[in-house]
Amino acid sequence: MTIMDNQNNKKELVKLIQENKGIVFKICNSYCHNKGDREDLAQEIIYQLWKSGKTFHADQKFSTWMYKVALNVAISFYRKSKRANELVSFKENLKDIEDDDFENADYENEYEKTRKSLQKSINELKELDRALMILFLEAKSYKEIAEILGITETNVATKISRIKDKLKQKILNFNN
């Protein structure tokens, strides 16, 4: 039985999406440079989750299903806007990042500084590596990450250890 079989289940799905919208926002921050795009992507992910509700079975783990849909939509959106943005200069994109609200963080606060550097470093990774690190930081198990991305657990472990080292180095560079 799927979650979208009746009206009550639809409401249940919307409730689950509402409860997990933090995940959506973090994915949007990682795949979009500017606020407008982030908002469009968030709308698109939530709509696709709602539309794909019929494929979610009650015996599945909601977060696994949600990450699959959200990351697939985010990567497709990112690739589409990357093609469109080839007409926009790189400087303009950088300006967008600098203009963002969360970029105005208090630089005296070490924790905030690390958060900002972490987000920046994540945003610089390739699409699939980015998805992998998001799932790692979301504290997903290697098994769940492997299922979401469609790769083996061994591959997940090897990649995480490799990318994590690069990421930490980048954060240190940004912080200094």
Partner: peptide, 10 residues
């Protein structure tokens, strides 16, 4: 299908 694993769909 967006519900398939990321590498397959992409």
């Amino acid at each position: 299908d967006n519900c398939e694993s990321v590498t397959i769909t992409q």
